[in-house]
């Protein structure tokens, strides 16, 4: 069973994502701020990370950078999920090592497509 880490500080979004991914058959891990996201990822080594940008303590960009710099976690696909989705935001996301960028709001099918792209069953 694939492990998915959701880094998000919005309760409602956490709730729908958690519900959706569990029903899709994934193990769901949740971090509500940047700092705990990094430690959780290093501990659990998830198969994919959905990472918000605007987060308490540590921004999504820094979380991404930290994980990509760590040899253990550098192979984990990181998908930015953000309402901040202007050209420069997206560019920065890729610059710090992000593998994809989903603009909020997204649909269940968009999530499915991204997971399919990065996790070969």
């Amino acid at each position: 069973m694939s492990k998915i880490l959701i880094v998000e500080d919005e309760e409602h979004i956490i709730k729908v994502l958690d519900m959706f991914l569990k029903r899709e058959g994934y193990e769901v891990l949740i971090a509500k701020d940047g700092a705990s996201a990094v430690s959780l990822a290093q501990e659990e080594l998830p198969d994919i990370v959905f990472l918000d940008i605007v987060l308490p303590k540590l921004s999504g960009y820094l979380v991404c950078q930290a994980l990509k710099e760590d040899a253990n976690t550098s192979q984990i696909p990181i998908i930015f999920v953000s309402a901040k989705a202007q050209d420069e935001d997206i560019k920065k996301g890729y610059d710090v090592g992000g593998d994809d960028f989903l603009v909020k709001p997204f649909t269940p099918n968009q999530i499915r497509a991204v997971i399919k792209k990065f996790i070969k069953e």
Binding site: K15, F20, A83, A85, P105, T107, P108
Partner: peptide, 22 residues
């Protein structure tokens, strides 16, 4: 930006309901 956050849960929630998975 402030609109997009609530729209995300609406989009996901309504999407899931329409898929009748719940």
């Amino acid at each position: 930006h402030e609109f997009r956050t609530p729209l995300t849960s609406i989009s996901m929630g309504a999407g899931l309901l329409l898929e009748q998975q719940i």
